[in-house]
Every structure is written in structure tokens, then in C-alpha cells.
Amino acid sequence: MMKNFKHIFSVILIFCSLLAGAAHFPQDKKIPNEINVGLATGDAKVLSSYFNQNVELVVLDNDNVYSKAQAQQIVTNFFNKFPPLEKNAFSIIHDSGKENAQYVIGKLKTEKGDFRVYFLLKQNDGKQYIHQLRIEQQ
């Protein structure tokens, strides 16, 4: 019960903080294609190249703030257990944001079921980094 409350609260907090500002995420700041490719192909190495030095990660039973290397290992284990179905297994359902932050909600199709993917991107020194990643079974 407490874990569900924590999840709902953090998702609401992300949405509210990103939607509160009047300025929207600049249209020229698209989601890096490598992130989509990493998720769609199950390539944790490509995906982790966009991880911030510390990442809030919620993947199955892992729910904590991890270093970039730890987060890559957890995501690698996830993809080993749940390989994506096809090359285009990840699709974006919704994305929005403001100034230097953007959130994305997507769907990942794997051999063992579908997952909802949430991630929060923040820009730093001209590059976008994943600060939060959630992969939850639908």
C-alpha cells in the first residue's frame, strides 16, 4: 500500500512540477533517438550513456537512487529477463515538459508482457540526461 502511494505521489509530483511553468520544453529539444533505440532493442549500454551520475530507478523490485554503473547493471538484468519483442518494441505515449526538463511516458513490449516506462530528462551542459527511470509491469 505504501509503495503504491509512493509511486502515485512521485508521478503526480513530476507532472505538477513540469506542467507548472508557463514555458514549454523547446520544440527543438527532442528526445534523443538513442534513448528510444536503447529501450526498443534492450540495449542498456546505449540507454545508460544518457544516465545522470545518479539515477532514481524503479525497475521491478529495485527502487532506489543508484550510480550510473549500478543502474546500467539493473537495466541489463531487466532486459536479459524481459527481452523486447521486436526492434520497434518501445513507443512513446506522451511527452511534455518545460525549459530544461522533459518527461516521457511510453510502452515497452517484451517477450513476457508489456511494461509502462516513465523517464525524466534534464538538460545539463547542452546534453539531456535521464534523472529518473521507471519500468513497471502493466
Rank of each mutant, 00 (worst) to 15 (best):
M2Y: 11
K3R: 10
K3E: 11
F5V: 10
F9Q: 10
S10K: 08
V11Q: 13
L13G: 10
L13A: 14
F15G: 14
F15C: 12
F15Q: 11
F15V: 15
C16H: 08
L18K: 00
L18F: 08
L19H: 09
L19K: 11
L19N: 13
G21C: 09
A22E: 08
A22V: 10
A23P: 06
H24V: 14
F25R: 12
P26N: 12
Q27F: 14
D28E: 15
K29S: 12
K29P: 00
K29G: 05
K30E: 14
N33R: 15
I35P: 02
N36I: 11
V37Y: 08
G38W: 01
L39T: 03
A40S: 15
G42I: 00
D43Y: 02
D43P: 02
A44E: 04
K45W: 02
K45Y: 09
V46H: 00
L47H: 02
S48C: 12
S48E: 04
S49D: 07
S49W: 02
Y50P: 02
F51L: 05
N52A: 15
E56D: 14
L57N: 06
V58K: 11
L60C: 05
L60N: 08
D61H: 13
D61Y: 07
N62A: 08
V65E: 15
Y66C: 00
S67E: 07
K68P: 00
Q70I: 03
Q73I: 07
V75G: 02
N77G: 11
N77H: 08
N80Y: 06
K81L: 07
K81F: 06
K81Q: 09
K81R: 09
K81M: 07
F82S: 03
P83W: 06
P83D: 05
P83C: 04
L85V: 14
E86H: 09
E86V: 07
N88S: 09
N88I: 07
N88P: 04
I93Q: 15
D95L: 05
S96F: 12
G97K: 00
N100V: 02
A101T: 03
A101S: 15
Y103G: 02
I105T: 08
K107F: 01
E111W: 01
E111R: 13
D114H: 07
D114P: 01
F115V: 03
F115N: 03
F115T: 01
R116N: 11
V117E: 03
F119W: 07
F119P: 00
L120Q: 05
L120W: 02
L121K: 05
K122G: 10
N124G: 05
D125N: 11
D125M: 09
D125H: 10
K127I: 00
K127T: 06
Q128M: 14
H131Q: 10
Q132E: 11
L133V: 04
R134H: 13
Q138M: 09
Q138C: 06
